[in-house]
Nucleic acid binder design. Structure first.
Lengths: 223, 223
DNA sequence: AACAGGTATTACCAAATTGTTATAATTACT
DNA sequence: AGTAATTATAACAATTTGGTAATACCTGTT
């Protein structure tokens, strides 16, 4: 059984080859596309676990592909990451805003690539884990209890869920919309500042510096 | 009676010592092995409830040990977890694929270790136990009798079942829905306040402070 | 039919949680 | 540096939730 299906889209054949080769060696099942349109086609057919998208591609660029996929509920649980050139600072934000989970900067070493991919796959499993551990923080989803530096902290439901969500994918930036959808649901409408306030309360209660703000995008949990 | 048998296999004596010490303190019965082969031998002899395996060990590595044990029906219900070094991204996935239930990253803090192990044990601690003991409370499911601080308390059916359910996984928060489903069944529809009232009666009768409310979530039994 | 034990419902109250608003602080951009 | 956009904060308001006690309902028994 393969470790998972990965779709890679890039217009440079060399890059496609290198990445494919290495990830195949790691035991992943690899599919490739050389432009945005065929990336989408292929994605629909094979339902990959992870999609690696180059930004600049013919027919449809990576960001548009990502937006399209994200708007399709079939890909709600698909991990999408971008391949970006080192210098393009902007794409990082744009990429994250379009709903990507992470990005990888080109050129990328084999080792980094592999460990990133493995880390991303690990995330899938984390979301349903009973106990999340991050540094000094233990989040016990069964007991509904958070332990920070040995002290039990009881968070009310919303705060707990929010922290739990963020901590389920350390490093991943969660868009405000995603957070709203996952914690509040689609039908409930709450004001703009609601998330901030909850984030603040969490930061206050567990006094660790582990939730950081990514302006214009969202929040992420880290270390 | 010990809280359970744990076999720890690691080639570094230091780690063995630290983990053993802490888990013994927690009331577990500890056995150790320093290589894969003797881990298997020992496992056969003592039938541990939980096996903690280092990946890199002499003679037979942790993954192979795990695969072997999993192929043996005697160990179908044994919990197997890996100890992995932080940087070994690969092994986590491979480990889980080989049939392990979880993994613990090295170095691990005492606190994390203990809560993980306890959580794992909670998994096997069946909800079908005949007699539940929690502190001063004895719940005899066959006789339908609860004894608190030596005094017998007779609870009516629903109250008994409710207490019995909560006490079957101390610490775990039971959602109202779960409770309704397990005690009342899916087809019966009862009002919103029903659970509360029963909880109240239980609290009243056994006068201990052992059922706590997690607002918006449910109830849990503790100490 | 009246009773009794167990179970469910209701309505009201208190309290915790959650959401909003207005204002300050920060950041990003020109 | 100045401006606009975004986020942080604190105080407040609204809502939800659970606790409580009294009451009604069932089912089987006498």
């Amino acid at each position: 059984m393969s470790k998972g299906k990965i779709l890679i889209a890039d217009d440079e054949q060399d890059i496609l080859d290198i990445i494919s080769y290495n990830l195949k060696n790691e035991g992943f099942e690899i599919f490739t596309a050389t432009n945005g349109v065929s990336a989408i086609e292929l994605a629909k057919q094979i339902s990959p676990d992870l999609i690696i998208l180059d930004i600049m591609m013919p027919l449809k660029n990576g960001i548009d592909v990502c937006k399209f996929l994200r708007s399709n509920s079939n890909f709600k649980n698909t991990i999408i990451v971008f391949l970006t050139a080192m210098n393009d600072e902007n794409f990082e934000v744009k990429g994250l805003q379009s709903g990507a989970d992470d990005y990888i900067t080109k050129p990328v070493s084999t080792r980094v690539l592999i460990s990133k991919v493995n880390a991303l796959f690990r995330r899938i499993k984390n979301e349903e884990k009973e106990i999340l551990v991050a540094g000094d923080l233990i989040i016990d989803r069964k007991k509904y209890i958070v332990t920070a530096s040995g002290k039990d902290i009881s968070l009310p439901k919303k705060e707990f869920e929010l922290l739990s969500l963020l901590a389920s994918s350390p490093g991943k930036v969660f868009l405000r919309n995603d957070i709203l959808e996952k914690i509040w649901g689609t039908d409930v409408i709450v004001g703009d500042r609601t998330i901030d306030v909850h984030i603040r309360k969490i930061r206050q209660k567990i006094d660790m510096d582990c939730i950081s703000t990514v302006k214009g995008v969202g929040y992420k949990f880290e270390l």
